[in-house]
Simulated assay, not measured.
Amino acid sequence: MAEDTSLLKYLSLNQITTEQWNLKEAAIGCAQAEVPWISIWRHKLEVFGIAESKRIIKDTGLEVSSLCRGGMFPAATEEQRRKNLDDNKRAVEEAAELGTDVLVLVCGPAPDRNIDLSRQWVGEGIEQLVPFAESYGVKLGIEPLHPMYAADRSVIVTLGQANKIAEEYSPEQVGVVVDVFHVWWDPELYKQIARAKERILGFHVSDWNVPITDTFKARRMMGDGVIEIRRIRKAVEEAGYHGPIEVEIMNQDLWDMPGEHVLKLMKDSFVKHV
């Protein structure tokens, strides 16, 4: 593939790619590697707290592409669903404080095998969260996950499902996040990307290779698998998205590697394959 260095201005490190680093290490690493964006995971905020985390980001000159994650709406009891909603409100506040207008939603699994009811709870949770998020200027990005994660992470497993929910709201309130690892297999992928026109809030890249022996840490570096990443990226652009592109890779080999080596590999693969 031809290399395209012009895209580097959109490159964002999704923090899970360098799970071995805390937020300060990741921010300094990005600044040194000239990676202009970072996506922050909430468990990384806990180390320094929101105020110090915000200062770290400001001092390194980075832009925050998104906060991961909100969601996890379904629960077996009404009390727990209320607690989940409260946690989502805290996530909205954190996103606004960090200077990003995108909260990524991983919507949650079925706690009691009733997948239809859990999808209803997802819809209700988003409906309850929208006014609060809008008051903070934060948009909710529904990220559909690959169907293999339906049992433990999300009952929203296709871009079509995510679009259907998002279309109940304005694009300034709710949109979708397109992660190539989760959607590349979908026969309706390009139809659904076009359907999401002006409603795509994030684009995540990695790759899919076999065999998959650990579903959580299954992702590979771009170019190491079968996904038509560049084709998907161009479709997302045609649908109106021209924002940061997050490299989001859960992989133990990368986590065992020095973070600066991961960033170099990430940049090289990004230029060649995204």
Rank of each mutant, 00 (worst) to 15 (best):
R199W: 10
R231T: 14
L140Y: 02
H43Y: 12
N251R: 10
V157Q: 10
V106Q: 09
S65W: 00
V174K: 01
V130I: 15
I28T: 07
L265E: 13
I165R: 04
I212H: 05
K89T: 11
E78W: 10
F181P: 03
S53M: 04
M250F: 13
K54R: 15
W185L: 00
G259R: 03
Q128N: 08
K267W: 03
T215G: 10
G141W: 08
W255R: 14
A235R: 00
M1W: 05
K267T: 05
I16K: 07
E97H: 12
L159G: 08
H182I: 09
E19V: 08
L7G: 06
R199T: 12
K272R: 13
Q32E: 12
L62W: 03
P144Q: 06
V178T: 05
Q192E: 12
Q128G: 05
P258R: 07
S118R: 05
G70R: 03
L8C: 09
N14H: 14
G243N: 11
P258G: 01
V271Y: 04
D253A: 14
K83W: 05
T5K: 12
V92E: 05
G61L: 11
E167A: 11
I57L: 13
I40L: 04
E168A: 15
I126Y: 07
R195L: 01
M221T: 09
L13H: 02
G108T: 12
I227Q: 01
V205F: 02
V180C: 06
L145Y: 03
R219G: 02
K267Y: 00
I115R: 07
E25A: 09
A26I: 11
K44M: 12
W37I: 06
G49Q: 05
T17C: 05
V106L: 12
P171A: 08
Q192Y: 04
K264N: 10
Q15Y: 10
I156A: 00
C107D: 13
D268P: 06
Q252F: 08
Y190I: 09
R220M: 10
I227P: 02
Y136C: 11
R219N: 10
E127K: 14
A33N: 08
E124W: 06
Q120H: 14
I165E: 04
W121A: 12
R113W: 08
V176L: 02
L62I: 11
P244K: 13
R220W: 07
R81W: 02
D256A: 15
